[in-house]
Structure formats: C-alpha cells, structure tokens
Design a binder for these strands. Structure first.
Lengths: 242, 242
DNA sequence: GTAATAGTGTCTTTAAGACACTATGTA
DNA sequence: TACATAGTGTCTTAAAGACACTATTAC
C-alpha cells in the first residue's frame, strides 16, 4: 500500500504552486420573512446571460481575507441594504458545489439565510426596484416562488434547490430554535407568532395547543400592553425572552 | 445609490482575470460508527507542522472538475480505504471558512460525515496503523475525543468544532432520518439499535418505549431468525425497511 | 434447575388536538 | 348593543416513562 501521508504532501506542494486550478467561492443569501401570513424571499431578476430573465438570490464572492460569515454579512449590506441599524438572523445553510451549476465557471456557493422582521423588509425594499418579494411554497419536494402578479417565477441556476433547503431548514428548526422571533418585531401578539409558525410549516395550527406550548416554553412573556388600531378586542403584546 | 448590478459585472471581470486571489477548497470527513455502545470517529495524527502531533480528520482538496459530493466520495476511498464493496452514508455537514483556520493558507473546508457499520470500520482499519478510533463525547458544548489509552486527544485546527457539529447533527436527525441504520449491519437486534441511539444521544433510553417507537415507525421488520453465539436467550434479528 | 437477557402488560404522566365556551375590546 | 377576535376550560387521544412481570435460550 502506498504511503498516503507522503502523497498528501506532494499533493499540497503541487496545489500551492498554482498548477492546480482553484474553484471560486461565493455566498448566496436567502432573505426571508413572513408577510401577511405568507413566507416570502428576496429575488432579483438577472439582466444578463446565463439565466437571463430568471430570478436569482443575491450573492457575491468570498474575499481571500474574509471568513464565510463575514462575506455573508457584507453581501447582506451591499446587495440588499441590510445592515446598520437593521438586524438579521444570519445562518449558514448548505454548500452547493456541482461542477456545472454555473455555466460560466466553477463556482462553489455557500448559502445562508437571513431572517428579517417584516417591517424592516418592506422599509429597505422600498428603495430597490430591482428586487422583488416572492411568495415561497414548499409542498413535498416542490418549491414554488410566486411573483407580485401571482405567477410562478423561473429560478436561476440551482437557486430552487437553495430555496428548498432554506424552507426545510426553517421547518426543522422551528420547534427548538428561536428563528420565529427573528421574523417578528420586538413586540408581537401570540396570533402574529402563530401566523409565522403556520407560514413556515405550511399548515394551520390548533390555537389553544399553540398558546399552551409557547407559554410553557417560557420563551415569551407578556408585557401587559396591548396592540392598537384594531376594530375588535386588541391582543396582548409579548416579547421574546432569550 | 450606486448601480449594484454594474458593480457586480465589474467585480466578476476582475475576479476572472485572476487579479483576485481564490481560497482553496477542501473536504474533511468525519467517519463515525458506534462500537461497543460508544460513538467513535476516525482520526489521524499529524506528522508535520502546523498542529504537529495533534489529531486531525481525514481530508483532501476539491478538484476543479469535481463536485463537493464527488470529492467527499473520493477522499473516503483514498484516505480511509472505504469504497468498493464498503458502504457509507455520506452527508454534507457544514462549511468552515474562518480566515486563519489553517495557518499555511486560506482553506475553506466542507465537512461531511461518513457513517459506517462497525464491522466494516474495524475491517478497513486493521490495515491502517496511522489511523485511530477515538471515542467521542459531547456534553453541553464540550466535545472530547478519547484515544485507545483513554486519554483526551488534542485536536488539530478547528476539527473539534467539526466534530461538535457532527454529533449535534446526528442527535438532531436521529428521530426522523434513517442514520441509525447506517451504523448497523444488515441484520441487527433491537438491543443493537437501542445502543446506537443511546450512544448518539449520550443517555440511556427506556426499553419498552423504545421498542414500541421503533416497531410503530414501521422502519424495521423482524426476520424470524435469531442472533447466535450468546450465552443467554438470543434476540430476534431485524432488518431496516426503507 | 439457574443465569441472563428477550420481550410484554399496564399504569401513570405528558402533551397535543378538538371544540365549545367565556371575556373584552371597538364601533 | 352587536361584532369580531382574544383567550380559556375541559374532554379526548396519542405517546412516552416507569416498572414489574413473563418468556426463552444457553449452560
């Protein structure tokens, strides 16, 4: 049997001498929120080939002196004006590395999702005509992105796969992680919270059971204040307890 | 506000012209199994700087014409003699991209775990004196790797983080994914299955409840045959039903 | 027979679902 | 007052934990 440690060294030397071509590394961001009870994600329409006219996630290349997380943070600011006082829950999702996923060149992309409370989403988006909020639906293995006119958007590259991973991850983590609160303002009603859960899970939930579960979890506490502007009995406002 | 689509094009052109330095991309593999009721992982001792003497996960660089999954598969064969008739459950875990995680150069690594039934693990390992099986324990946020002499092994680079992610992922997926069966031979007893669950979760489980859960899940079925070589009542052998 | 583990019956506990009910704000 | 939603009480159902019990095999 060959000495694999030796061959590892040789490999590394070859690699270092630039005879060995390196892939490019990018990050793609799935900005998500729940607006009017629907799960939405941010997409931009491509104005050049390849995939011209298709809808793509905001993304950018990873700099040589920049960690993956830093690159995601930077792209969040540059591409979608999130940053500064805006807050976003950034979390690495999955890495996509098929050889031909981008026909121009070899690009490995590390996908992140960025969870944004809806009021910040609409605020930042008002300035950006080139971006749209698509309604995302995952039924079984099929992901759909609906545009403003309620027609399905054609997704660029493997960005449909990325969206599928994002929704699956949200569903998987919803019960043991505070992601739902990253999609809500500081003050929210239990109805708001239930709507977020329902949008992520893609199904309606039983109200008494949901309230029991949330209150027993001790992750929310009532503020004693109530929402305003309703034409009916206002609900109590709650706050996330870390 | 600047036109971000224009600057994206410019960025891509700069990038393509090789003025822009690219990081290297590697895959690191966490070979795992459950042996004698303990969770174990494969580690090799480094014989060169940096981290000389520390224990590291097997890994290798991703080729320019090779997908991430293909690279993981190749490294599984090359580095640990898994491949051919051996079967392993390969699954992408997480990508690690801190700038200084390897002091030699910028390396982004995509971690995979490879789940191996124990008998194949020991078979393949008999040929490799440079690799060791470490017992892995995760309590809270603390990961420990114990060597053959029961002393803690010092882990190279950020490989402790990678192991921590691996165990957390196993725990998270145990109940809704067939990973436990990837750590068992074709025929196994319900006691074997329970030992795998206990090793992953790091706690003992209630026997009747566990058996009910497994049988109700319809993911196992009895074969009518029994284990042999015991000095007590032999248990029925079960098979995984996909 | 004994030893040792396989495998089960059943009671308790916990949590979710169903559904109807009461409570309380606005208009 | 009517209305619409907030918020709860309680019954049922499903599943996990506890624990003791019976069953079966090697020796």
């Amino acid at each position: 049997m060959e000495n694999t440690k030796m061959s590892e060294k040789q490999f590394l030397e070859t690699y270092n001498s630039d005879n060995f071509e390196r892939p490019s590394v990018a990050v793609d961001l799935v900005f998500m929120s729940v607006i009017d009870g629907e799960l939405v994600a941010l997409l931009g329409q491509r104005d050049a080939h390849p995939s011209k006219g298709d809808w793509a996630l905001p993304g950018g290349f990873v700099g040589i002196g920049e960690s993956l997380d830093d690159a995601a943070q930077r792209v969040a600011k540059e591409k979608a004006c999130f940053g500064g006082k805006s807050r976003a829950w950034l979390e690495q999702l999955y890495s996509f590395g098929d050889v031909a996923r981008d026909p121009r060149m070899r690009i490995i992309t590390v996908a992140y999702f960025a969870l944004i409370p809806p009021e910040q989403f609409t605020e930042n988006l008002a300035q950006r005509a080139d971006l749209t909020l698509a309604t995302i639906t995952l039924k079984g293995e099929t992901i759909t992105a609906l545009g403003a006119d309620n027609t399905a958007l054609s997704l660029a590259f493997d960005h449909g796969d990325i969206l599928r991973h994002a929704v699956s991850r949200l569903r998987g983590k919803l019960d043991y992680s505070p992601i739902a609160f990253a999609l809500l303002p500081d003050l929210f009603t239990l109805r708001d919270l239930q709507e977020v859960h329902q949008a992520i899970m893609g199904k309606s939930l039983n109200k008494p059971a949901f309230r029991r579960r949330m209150l027993d979890s001790r992750r929310v506490h009532g503020t004693g204040t109530r929402e305003s502007g309703t034409s009916y009995r206002p609900a109590e406002l709650y706050r996330f307890k870390p």
